[in-house]
Design a protein around this nucleic acid. Structure first.
Lengths: 145, 145
DNA sequence: CCGTATCCAATGGGATACTG
DNA sequence: CAGTATCCCATTGGATACGG
């Protein structure tokens, strides 16, 4: 209604308030996953085996590796290929669809590396103010205007 | 070392394997939060009050609203202002730093809306194959090559 | 109006043991 | 090698009640 700049982030506009099935929410939940982005990063360039992924992530449990890979496979973001050799060999690779997700994720990475210092500084400043405010419990240090 | 295209998502490159303090991980955890992005979207344009935010998110509990707003404030992404009026009034607005995060988040939103159909289709296809494979339990339907 | 404190159910994720 | 199955603890988040 207003002639302000468009609200580019307003998910509720396109989806009538918060909706559990909002595409953005679905994807954010994926990305929010501790291992998803890391695995996509590892698979971005080359096909890799299960054990290789486990080693290169450095500490993921078998359960979570399997679970995350399944989820990514189900979403069509990675491809799983089984070779009927002995011992069995399974390889994972990124799909064309998965590859298109790399750029948006990289944007997040770039922002994070560029602004992390500001965020950490803000956190320190905030914490310091809170610690200074040893007033009545239940009362935060606040800013009047 | 190789002369391939650079691995733009490889967080481990810059941070020596998976590191809990990797900036990208820190930010992804924020974003992963169920309400963070929604609140940033609501505050993107204009300052809003606590009760307004609660209403417009449509269903967030007081606890989570407070908690999420605190977290965003601590990170320097939003600003909290208290007016010493009766009854008290508290307003939240996005900071310049928070505003710079809008674009990367919008990129995720755009990707999601553009590719959600493919993802859902991939999921359906995957599920169908799994349901068809009523073989020995413990054996998934697999693809040989 | 804008919170904080507490209780409690659901979920997530690691460790471990076992299979084709 | 590449999983699956089970147990179990830590974290999450909603509901509720209370406070400045």
């Amino acid at each position: 209604m207003s002639d302000q700049a468009e609200n580019v982030l307003n998910i509720s506009n396109s989806w009538n308030a918060y909706h559990a099935q909002c595409p953005t929410r679905l994807m954010l939940n994926k990305i929010a996953d501790k291992w998803t982005v890391l695995l996509l990063g590892l698979l971005e360039q080359e096909t890799k085996r299960f054990s290789t992924l486990q080693r290169e992530t450095g500490g993921i449990s078998q359960k979570m590796l399997t679970q995350t890979l399944r989820s990514l496979e189900r979403d069509g973001l990675i491809q799983r290929t089984v070779y009927a050799s002995v011992p069995p060999r399974v390889e994972y690779s990124i799909t064309p669809l998965g590859a298109t997700l790399v750029a948006p994720l990289a944007a997040i990475r770039v922002w994070s590396e560029k602004h992390i210092e500001e965020v950490l500084a803000a956190q320190s400043a905030y914490d310091q103010v809170q610690n200074t405010a040893q007033q009545h419990p239940n009362v935060r240090k606040i800013v009047f205007k």
